[in-house]
């Protein structure tokens, strides 16, 4: 199995505070990797380092075959990113947003055209191509934002709480998009607070106080802890936290 993300001793300190403390894990190609943890556990900080948005204090990380410290530009070309906060331009039309981001990732013009049509078709957005993004319902926006994040066929896509505030039906549809991307070989690295979503992941890591406390498939985790639901797994692990927000 090809390894797409490889993290060794990744640490980020702010003064004496260790936001992320010696992380070690590997993620394989096409895997859906859930990154869980209570607020303030260090998820976002870790993810920002993997995306090249912040520099590790020590340790190393390779993403899509490139070291995040030595080759951040190469890493950036091979990843997609969607954040919990809305990540498209409100005052641009649906189609303009797609084209802008396609352009940013250097997709050649003729290709942008055909792929944009295909995407609009797939999302049933053909009617809305000229709608301002701000006029779309939240669930639609998130689906569009995700599609834009994987538009350039990255090796890894990072999703930071992508479904916050979205209703269960739309969330389910959103996950269908994620499965589809994973089936195409795109590795999905996702943080979430919804335990039903955690069940959809191939493997889960649970962060507590900057460290990974548990890492396994949802089924294995439940069995190991001897509980019936992910909710309980989360609560049992999160209870170990000594940090307060």
């Amino acid at each position: 199995m090809e390894t797409v993300i490889e993290v060794q001793g990744l640490t980020k300190s702010f003064g004496s505070f260790k936001a992320v403390d010696h992380l070690n894990f590997k993620v394989a190609k096409g895997e859906i990797f859930g990154f869980l943890g209570a607020n303030g556990a260090g998820k976002t900080t870790a993810m920002r380092m993997l995306c090249g948005l912040s520099k590790p204090t020590s340790g190393s990380a390779r993403v899509a075959g490139y070291d995040v410290q030595l080759n951040p530009e190469k890493v950036k070309q091979n990843i997609g990113y969607m954040s919990q906060r809305f990540s498209l331009y409100d005052d641009l039309k649906v189609e303009e947003n797609i084209r802008l981001f396609a352009g940013i990732y250097g997709i050649p013009r003729p290709l942008i055209k055909t792929q944009t049509e295909a995407l609009l078709e797939k999302l049933h957005f053909t009617e809305e191509r000229n709608t301002m993004v701000r006029a779309l319902p939240l669930g639609w926006k998130q689906k569009l934002a995700f599609s834009v994040a994987v538009f350039h066929q990255p090796k890894v896509v990072f999703l930071d709480e992508p479904t916050g505030g979205v209703d269960p039906v739309t969330r389910r549809q959103f996950w269908e998009l994620i499965y589809e991307a994973a089936a195409q070989g795109i590795t999905v690295f996702v943080t979430t607070h919804y335990m039903d979503e955690a069940e959809y992941c191939d493997r889960l890591s649970m962060m507590v106080d900057g460290r990974i406390e548990a890492l396994d498939s949802p089924q294995q985790l439940k069995e190991k802890m001897g509980v019936a639901s992910m909710d309980e797994v989360f609560r049992l692990l999160a209870r170990k936290a000594k940090r307060t927000e």
Binding site: C51, G52, K76, Y81, M82, L88, Y89, G106, F158
Partner: peptide
Amino acid sequence: ETGTMEILLVSPV
């Protein structure tokens, strides 16, 4: 403020 800057910083631009 809107978070689009982060998206741009993660992109190769």
